[in-house]
């Protein structure tokens, strides 16, 4: 009897650690990541990663379909796969205005593991490498002069085509827009004071330069100078009292986790 129990110990230990054994430094375990996915993500994103989990039909903003490798929150140029750190950023911060919450309470290992698993839904991750992230120069600072210049930038780049003359998301092309999945999508109302992909000035800057993959929002990286982009950021911040108007305030706000 004792002998048999002794035999079971390595079997038990094997079962226990099998899931974690594939973890190498820096990258996650796909095998454990599948369990993390099933525990936390499956109900919305679906067993096949197609964004059609059991809860998806009740959601106005649909969960991401992972099969195409397109992600809105990226530091990489339009068309590129995201970096792992981009995906982790979304796990840490969630997506405001959607059902995607922050997963900060999870341990970093679980986050790494689930990122490795999510990447298996798109064959692109096996054949392509993400491009280098865009460079975001320091915010020169919010000022009335910058806002005034940004007003001209908003006109020059025809942002009003979709976002409307007052930034309320009511431009001539605002209607009938569709995302990659054929779902209706509207341009963001820039006066609402919160950006889905983050509310710091760098978050707004990044959206211009990377575009929002899978949506009509294109990249302006090839046409807009960084000086113009910062002025435009400040103009957009001027549209809403809800935007943190300078980097320091935004950073302090984030530290305490105030994202409501």
């Amino acid at each position: 009897m004792f002998y048999r129990v002794g035999q079971l110990i390595p079997v038990f230990a094997g079962l226990l650690f099998a899931a974690g054994s594939a973890t190498a430094a820096g990258t996650g375990s796909v095998k454990t990541g599948k369990l993390v996915y099933e525990r936390y993500c499956l109900s919305c994103h679906g067993a096949e990663g197609n964004g059609q989990g059991e809860a998806a039909e009740y959601m106005a903003v649909k969960p991401r379909d992972y099969r195409q490798g397109t992600y809105k929150w990226r530091t990489t140029p339009s068309g590129s796969l995201p970096l792992d750190s981009d995906l982790e950023h979304t796990l840490l911060n969630g997506l405001h205005g959607t059902y995607m919450p922050t997963w900060r309470a999870l341990d970093q290992r679980s986050r790494r593991d689930v990122i490795s698993y999510i990447k298996t839904f798109s064959p692109r991750f096996a054949t392509e490498k993400p491009q280098d992230p865009i460079v975001i120069p320091p915010d020169p600072g919010y000022s009335d002069a910058s806002v005034a210049r940004g007003t001209a930038v908003y006109k020059k780049y025809n942002c009003s085509q979709c976002h409307g003359p007052g930034g309320q998301g009511d431009g001539p092309s605002a209607h009938e827009l569709k995302d990659d999945w054929g779902n209706a999508i509207v341009p963001y109302d820039l006066t609402k004071g919160h950006v889905k992909c983050g509310d710091q000035s760098t978050d707004i800057y990044r959206v211009f330069m990377t575009g929002l993959a899978g949506t009509p929002m294109p990249t302006f990286a090839d046409s807009m100078s960084s000086a113009d982009a910062w002025d435009l950021v400040h103009f957009i911040q001027s549209l809403s009292p809800g935007y943190a108007k300078n980097m320091m305030a935004a950073a302090a706000d984030r530290k305490t986790g105030a994202t409501q």
Binding site: R67, Q68, G69, T70, P77, S78, G79, K156, Y157, N158, C159, Q161, D180, W181, G182, G211, A213, G214, T215, P216, M217, P218, T219, F220, D222, S223, M224
Partner: peptide, 22 residues
């Protein structure tokens, strides 16, 4: 303003999406 937004015709997956603002 135009944007040139190529997609995989089968899956609709965005390939890139670039603004042509002027």
């Amino acid at each position: 303003l135009h944007n040139t937004h190529p997609q995989n015709a089968e899956t609709n997956a965005t390939i890139f999406n670039v603004a042509l603002p002027f």
